[in-house]
């Protein structure tokens, strides 16, 4: 599992992130805004990891206004490609504002199990 996370999202919090990484053993990369992640980056990441997670802010709460909307769209485009190529991969977009730690953990746990 590889995680792209927006620094304004819940994983931007160093303490929480360290806890999650230790528990679920994933590698991650911080970005300024989830919307800045291009489709090509997602596809290239599939060369190394099967399951990708993009963590962005709640739509409407994005610091850059529409960033998380774009991130969601790109993850949907990536899903279409996974289907077209019948790849054994997944990409999940998670809204994670700082308030919802337990909900977030549940989602990560689900993916970690795949």
């Amino acid at each position: 599992m590889f995680v792209f996370y927006c620094k304004n999202s819940l994983l931007g919090n160093e303490e929480f992130r360290k806890k999650m990484v230790e528990k679920y053993k994933f590698e991650c990369k911080e970005v300024e805004c989830s919307g800045s992640i291009e489709l090509i980056e997602i596809l290239r990441a599939f060369e190394r990891d099967k399951h990708l997670v993009i963590v962005g802010c709640l739509e409407g709460n994005c610091r850059y206004r529409t960033g998380s909307n774009w991130a969601r769209r790109r993850s949907q485009e990536a899903k279409k490609i996974i289907e077209e190529l019948s790849l054994d991969c997944s990409v999940t977009f998670l809204n994670a504002s700082r308030a919802n730690e337990s909900k977030f953990e549940n989602e990560i746990l689900k993916i970690a199990k795949w």
Binding site: L39, I40, E47, E84, L85
Partner: peptide, 17 residues
């Protein structure tokens, strides 16, 4: 150019598969 990059990557992933 963007679309070339994406299709190229798709062909690489597809070949692997």
């Amino acid at each position: 150019q963007k679309e070339v990059e994406i299709l190229a990557e798709m062909l690489r992933l597809g070949a692997k598969k």
